[in-house]
């Protein structure tokens, strides 16, 4: 595997929740990335944001890694969960909360 694929694979394995996105959690630079950030923040999940805009090899590499052609991409415990539409659908259907529970990911209801 190329350097970038190794790097991505390591990021996905060493962080429970990783969001490959455009921009950063504090400053999303795309509406779709921003929507997933809002969902994760609402659920109070600790996650790592990786800004794909910083490196073109990374921006293409992540699409090759998951054979998924759009950004953002959410990974939980090394598994690709989906992009913005899927994460939002799963959140609305309470399935995303279930995935976190099943995988032992701490969620703190941020908005009490």
């Amino acid at each position: 595997m190329s350097g970038i694929q190794d790097w991505i694979s390591n990021e996905v394995k060493t962080n429970d929740v990783v969001l490959f996105m455009k921009g950063t959690p504090a400053f999303p630079q795309c509406g779709f990335s921003g929507q997933v950030v809002q969902i994760l923040d609402y659920l109070g999940v600790t996650y790592k944001g990786v800004n794909v805009l910083e490196d073109d090899d990374l921006r293409q590499g992540i699409k090759d890694f998951s054979s998924w052609s759009t950004i953002p991409q959410l990974y939980v415990k090394g598994e690709f969960v989906g992009g913005c539409d899927i994460v939002r659908e799963m959140f609305q259907a309470q399935e995303l909360q279930q995935v976190f529970a099943d995988k032992g990911i701490q969620t703190g209801q941020a908005a009490e």
């Binding site: 054979s67 052609s69 969960v81 989906g82 539409d85 659908e89």
Partner: peptide, 18 residues
Amino acid sequence: SRVQQHRLIYNALKGNMG
């Protein structure tokens, strides 16, 4: 799964996506 369903669509768009 949803991911598999959406992949079918992205593949149908033959690289135009993104």
